[in-house]
Every structure is written in C-alpha cells, then in structure tokens.
Design a binder for these strands. Structure first.
Lengths: 335, 335
DNA sequence: GCACAGGGTCGAAGCGCTTCGACTGGCGCC
DNA sequence: GGCGCCAGTCGAAGCGCTTCGACCCTGTGC
C-alpha cells in the first residue's frame, strides 16, 4: 500500500502539504498541487480509511438501520436504502448496513465506536426503543418516519395523514359514501408503526369531514388473507364502493378477487392505493394511487444528515407532500 | 469518549493488558480479566473503530456491492443483503453497502483505502468489468453468481442449470411436450447475467434429453408485457401446456391472464416458477416452484469470506442444490 | 539448590493520517 | 525603506489501538 509519506517524498514536499492538497484546507500553489496530484496518480495512492478516521475523528460513513421485518413491503425499503447509498456517495460518504436484528444495542455500538459519523433510522415506531439511546449518545441522526416524541430529532417522511385524507377526498368527490380501508398486517399496528396509524388517522378525519363511512381492516399480504378480509368487509358493509389499499402486497389479490366476484373496477367499485408508482402502473388495472416517494425520502434523509454534520443542521420534521395520480381504478360511485 | 488508556488506568493495569483481555491473544489471569472487564462495563468503553483498523490493518467490515438495476427482482436482492448483514454480524463484521452506481471504480476505492477487509459482489455478469480489478487488487472477495472465468475466485450461487433441468424434468414427467419459458427482461440477457443464461441452458439440455419442445421468450414484468408475450407464445405454439417462469414479476400476470383466457391451472396448463418461497405460496394459485435460496446464498457468501480471511480459504465454486416443491400449479398434461 | 520453562504483565514502537503553530519570502503600503 | 501581512510550506505532535520483545515470578525436574 502506498502511503502519504511516499507520495510526499515522490513529489518532493512534506507530508502535511500532500494532506492539504487532498483536503483543500489550506491554500497550495498551483505548481505544487500539480506535482502532488501527479505523484498521487502515478503511485496509485489511496488514503487509508482507518488512519484518516483516527486522525480526523470522521469516518465518512453513515449507518443505515433497516428493519428486517418480513411484514414490511420490501421494495420500498430497498429503494430507500439504494437512494441513501447513492446520495451518500455523492457527498463523499459510504453507508453501513445495519439490520434490525441487533436492536437498540446497535445504536450504542455505532455511537461508541465512532464507526459512523451519523445514523439514519428506518421503520421508526411511535415509541421506538432506539430513540432514548440516540438522544443520550448525542450522535447525529435522521429518522425516516415519525416517532411520538421528536424533540431534538430530525425526521423525514411522507405526510401520511395528508395521504389518507387525499385518498378519501378523491373517493368522496366521486360520490362514494362507504369506504373500506385495507390496512397493513395486524403486527404493523401492534408495534405502533407511525405511518400506518397516521394514514388511518388522516382517513378518519377526512371521512368525518366529508360525511363518509369508513371500515378499517388490517390485512396480511397474499390471496388467502385478502379473500377472508374482503368477505368480511362486504358482509358487514354490503354497500361498500370504495377501497383504500395501504398494503401493497394486497393490491393484486384484491383486484383479482373483485374481478372473480364480478365486481368491475372502476364501474362497481373504486380502488385507491398507497404504493410506489411502479406497483400502480404495473397492476392488472392501472391504479389511481398516492405514490410513496421512496427515493426522495432516502435522498432527503442523507441531505439532512450531511447538513447536520456540516453544522447547518435543523431539528425539523420534513414532511413530503403526497401526490395523488388518477388512473384507471377509480370512477364515480354507482348510483 | 472513553479510551483504552482510561480503562487501563481505572483497572490498574497497562494498556496492552486491556488490549489482550479484549482480543484474547495472550493469556490473562482470571482476576485481572475480571478487573478489566469490570472497568470496561463501568466506564462504558467501546474500542474506537478507526484506531483499531489502523493498528491492526483490519477494519472488520465487508463491502457488499449490490446492483441498482431496476429490472432485477428486488426482494431477492434485499433478502440476500439482509442475510449478508446479519450473518456478518455473527462473525463480528459490519457490512458496507455499495451500489452499482459507482461501477468498477468502487472496487479500486475500497481495495485501495482498506476500508473493507473483503468484498461480496452480487449480480455478477459473465464478463464482469469488476473482476480484472478485483484480481489485480488481490483483495479477498466472494461472488454471488458465476462469471465465465472464475480462476482465483470464490463463487456462491444456486445451481441454475440444475434448476432449469429440474423444472423441465417435472413437466416432462407429467406428460407435457410443449413448454414455454417466460424469461427475464431482455436487458438481463443482453448484459449476459450468468444465472439467466444458465437456467435456459439447463432447460434446453434437459428438454432435448426428454424430447420436449421449448420456446424461450424474455419478458418484462407487468401485465401489458405479459399479455403480449403470452399471445405470441400461443400463436406460435398453440399446443403449449407447460410454463416455466423465471421472472417473478411475471408470475401473477401470467396466472391472471391464463385465468381470463379460460385456461385452467393446472388442468389445462401447468406452471412452474423459479422464485422465492413466499412468492410461490402467496400467489393466486399455490405454485409448484424451485426456491431461490436467497438467505442461504447470503449466508454462505459471508461464511466463505470469513473462512478466507482466517486463511482457511478455498477458491471454489459452491453451487447450491435446487429443490423443487410441488404445489397446486402443475398437473398431468391434458390428453 | 539451581536452571529452566512458561504464564502473566508491561513498555514502547509504530499504524498513516490530520492539524496546529511556526517559519519564510514576497508584496503592498505608509 | 521598513513594516506588517498573507500565501505557501514544513515539522512535530498526536489520534487510540495492536503487537513485539522483554521482564518477572512461580513452579518443576533433576
């Protein structure tokens, strides 16, 4: 491995000069800079990450804690993770992948070892165990999601309340009076994942305002579960004409079952989904949907982290505005 | 931050003794060990990762290069990544997430900076650009996938040839004589991704042996693409009674379209998929399938890496045996 | 009773980098 | 013409850890 000292020697300057060429923290004459850069090229020099981290107490690494839940919709997680990784690179950071497995202890480990300069937490619960540790450690962090108590925390998330409201608004505007919400798996509510509850809150509030009846039913992914849920919904509320689907894994089963039952979409029933654009456009019926801006969330989270590390931080909650796109799955309520 | 020296002072021993307690590289008396461990607890000491990396030239980090292709089936990638991360932790390693974005340069950067002790490459192409750099750098690495030239490389992958053969074997055994293969998106073949071609090779070889006709058609995910592909297949080979589906995103559209066309599964046509178990069991028809052992692949890759780092390495290709599970989507060919 | 082995501990020398203070020479300014 | 100033460079002191050789002490074998 080539070292800084070797580069310095090769260029006929001192080690510190090379370091300053690299960091730009002091002015260097053009000729010296060129000589040094030439030597770096020629020797194929790469700074040693460990040494750099030790001397500067900056690792240029951002830790990303992703849940390893199987009941979460994986593509969204992945999309966020990828967006985080690529955005981080454009700011000179690498990303360390931590799974939920290790639990809150991971926060302590990362903070304690200075392995990462900052952390991004995904799948934040309303009363997340990691948060006390995070506050206590004083490590800079950004959450993707919204906990109950966000004092001293920076959060990025889709405005799920507005999302729920938007869906109901759209259906109500089309004349639907009985709406069913196909929710996330029961386990998601049980551990009080913020986004699931907030969506339902938004739906409920808007429904009351618009004088619409709402039936909310958690639902696992897959056909069997969906079939049961659907049967019970129509049993309880035969007049249901509008569906809001929150669980992407339920979208296709729902459409399929409706079709089998002879209920046409959107003539007999309308369906609005909260899902990534790709799911909406590739479904068997092109879905009217509110997009989950996974990439945007990942990007913003990193940008917040970078800002905080640069001292330009803001302890703010950044809620992304939901956008509803009308496609082929919603229409006027049947009279 | 608490340092080694402070722990040493608190415990009344020298710094090196604390280090040896931590690493276990020299014998330490029970009483000393206890005193030191007690001090560590009490002070809340965590070794500094940078310093450790510098002094030991070991970062305890494994870099994972994941593709950021949108045409790959994401859940499998994610599952592998998660398995890699959790398995790595059990061996004391963390995982650095690198996206394909940076390209081959990432290999050079990681190898040069000693940021990671080893690398795991996913989505390896037949003639992957990263491989020459990898060989040249001498960095320890494991591939998930099989390149054309694997001299000096350790690879882990599902035996996709056997997988293809297994599918054909199953269908042929049920009396099917005309089989259609719903392949990956065309782009996947264009960049010569090993697994896609190997599956088809396996299918072709077995088909010839079993005297079965095969029609292979690449196919994007989604309904529109699938509808076109399906129409062309039945146009060309009206007698097709067996399907092998390689692209998970095509599974549900295929089942749905077959149903719409009045072709019953498995009475009229049989479908075998190559996909994760979850997809197979949650589909509208429980699918006979060969599982993609994503977790197992991630785990084995890490274990190979760990073995190599410990000097117990083997430059071997480890092919995982495919397993076909019969479910409800295949039956005897109609006479 | 002595030599020797070996378990247990310590001191010191780095690992490769950043960064601070200090030094030098040339420039503009009064 | 002397002063201060600043751009440009250097030397040295760490950052917190690992590891090697050296040392001491106790126990063992003859």
């Amino acid at each position: 491995m080539v070292t800084l000292a070797e580069v310095a020697q090769h260029a006929g300057v001192s080690a510190s000069t090379v370091s300053y060429v690299l960091s730009g923290k002091r002015s260097i004459s053009a000729t010296t800079r060129e000589r040094v850069e030439h030597s770096i090229q020629q020797l194929g020099y790469h700074p040693n990450a460990g040494a750099r981290a030790l001397a500067s107490s900056r690792s240029n690494i951002i830790a990303l804690m992703v849940p390893l839940r199987t009941d979460m919709y994986v593509p969204v997680m992945m999309e966020i993770a990828i967006a985080v990784a690529t955005t981080a690179r454009t700011h000179g950071y690498d990303v360390l992948l931590l799974t939920g497995e290790e639990g809150p202890a991971a926060v302590r480990r990362i903070a304690g070892s200075s392995l990462a300069d900052a952390m991004i937490l995904m799948d934040v619960e309303l009363h997340d165990e990691r948060l006390p540790l995070l506050r206590e450690s004083g490590h800079t962090a950004v959450l993707i999601g919204l906990p109950a108590d966000r004092t001293g925390l920076t959060c990025v998330d889709l405005d799920f309340e507005a999302t729920g409201a938007l869906c109901v608004d759209h259906l109500a505007g089309l004349g639907h009076r009985d709406i069913a919400v196909i929710g996330e798996a029961a386990a998601v509510y049980e551990r009080h994942t913020g986004f699931a509850e907030r969506t339902v809150d938004g739906i409920r509030a808007k429904a009351q305002e618009a004088n619409v009846r709402v039936l909310h039913r958690p639902c696992e992914g897959g056909y069997a579960a969906m079939a049961g849920t659907l049967a019970r919904i129509f049993d309880e509320r035969p007049g249901t004409t509008g569906f809001v689907v929150q669980n992407e894994a339920a979208v296709e089963p729902l459409l399929n079952l409706l079709q089998q039952q002879g209920r046409a979409v959107p003539e007999d029933v309308s369906v609005v989904a909260v899902c990534p654009e790709q799911v909406a456009t590739q479904a068997s019926v092109r879905l009217t949907s509110v997009a989950i801006p996974a990439q945007e969330m990942g990007r913003r989270a990193v940008e917040q982290v970078v800002a905080k590390l640069a001292g330009r931080g803001s302890d703010e909650v950044e809620l992304l505005e939901p956008v509803l796109t009308v496609r082929a799955s919603t229409g006027p309520a049947p009279s």
